[in-house]
Amino acid sequence: MPDLIRVGMADYKVGQSPATLISYGLGSCIGVSLYDPQTKIGGLLHIMLPDSTQARASDNPAKFADTGFPLMLKDVLKMGASQSRLVAKIAGGAQMFAFANATDIMRVGARNAEAVKKILKDHRIRLIAEDTGGTYGRTVSIDLTNGAYKVKTIDKGEKEI
């Protein structure tokens, strides 16, 4: 596979066809992909938490949905993507351990998904596919040759959304 670019936790990468951006082992985290089908430019963001304003100061804005997404957006636009053509796909946001008295922090996956959807709406980016929730981990990748967003789980194998 040409140009497999790994995106770590609380990180994002942008690129152009024929690169593939991949992020391994997401639990409650969410992988947000952006893709411009015409220029074949895109990005993948791996966020951990919904909201930077509810956390203590961090050196790493890519950790949060609200601060990470604008950074990735800026970078794909800088590379030549057009905001009106950009489409988003998201996956992740699981709750890995089921506790009867799940605290807020245990439900962070669902809160991450909500936060990501809100920020996409705020930036008027269309969300065209989603695979969130559940109780299992995911490895996600976006193939920038065609925008295919692949989600791999240990029980269900790989699927494209």
Partner: peptide, 22 residues
């Protein structure tokens, strides 16, 4: 208990710390 990818399972622990720092 969960059987899954290590990253996904460790998420549970890391998220709480993530609110405080890196």
């Amino acid at each position: 208990l969960a059987m899954d990818m290590a990253g996904a399972i460790l998420n549970v622990v890391l998220v709480q710390l993530g609110q405080m720092g890196d």
